[in-house]
Simulated scan of single mutants.
Amino acid sequence: MMMSDIAKDRTAHLLKKRGSVSSLSNHEFRRKEPHGRTKDSVSTVSYMDEPCQPEDASRLTVHMENTYQLGPTKHFPVVIVNHILKDVLTTYLQEEQYEPELCRQMTKTISEVIKAQVKDLMIPRYKLIVIVHIGQLTGQSILIGSRCLWDPKNDAFASFIFRNSSLFALANVYTVYFE
């Protein structure tokens, strides 16, 4: 069944009123279907025909902001961390005697306590590394060294050595700024 020319004109007129343009013109587009029948095709394109008002333009402005930071806003408080190291080592090891198995467990416990207390300082974007060494005092000497590759402007470390009559302990906290 074919559309009459009047029906096509009405359809085109209604579509133009609504903001759509019909592809129908004087030349109809006919497509053959698989069974040999022809089918009329109508396609529409929608548009907005209202001018942009100045207040709409102000709402659409994009504000650019540089969020990349070149270094920490708050530096790592080495003095406070040194006090934490002193307090924790003194509290846990003041009355202890050196026993290998006990000291092995104490290094794990003390390092976790130190890490938790330093994290409570809420210093953003720093990665923490806590290392605790405990050894027996028997008259010999020991040298403990460490090396790190870091940015001296942003990265830092804190260290404290504890001794009693039976043992020594060395606690190090390394802080690396994470960009």
Rank of each mutant, 00 (worst) to 15 (best):
D5M: 07
D5K: 09
I6Q: 10
A7I: 02
K8M: 11
D9Y: 04
T11K: 06
L14M: 06
L14S: 05
L15H: 00
L15T: 02
L15G: 03
K16H: 06
K16C: 04
K17N: 03
R18D: 07
S20Y: 12
V21R: 15
V21N: 15
S23C: 07
S23M: 02
L24I: 09
N26G: 13
H27A: 15
R30Q: 15
R30M: 15
E33V: 11
E33N: 13
H35Y: 03
R37A: 12
T38V: 13
T38R: 11
S41M: 14
S41W: 05
S41A: 10
V42A: 06
V42H: 02
S43I: 12
T44H: 04
V45T: 11
S46I: 04
Y47W: 02
M48E: 05
M48P: 00
M48I: 01
D49A: 03
C52L: 09
C52W: 00
Q53F: 05
R59C: 08
T61K: 13
T61A: 13
T61H: 07
M64E: 09
M64S: 08
E65K: 04
E65R: 04
N66C: 14
T67V: 05
T67H: 08
Y68M: 11
Y68I: 11
Y68F: 06
Q69H: 09
Q69V: 12
L70V: 04
L70T: 04
G71M: 03
F76C: 02
P77N: 06
V81G: 01
N82C: 10
H83W: 05
I84K: 01
I84L: 13
K86L: 12
K86H: 14
T90A: 09
Y92I: 09
L93W: 01
L93T: 03
L93E: 10
Q94C: 06
E95V: 07
Y98M: 02
Y98A: 03
E99D: 15
P100M: 14
E101F: 00
L102C: 11
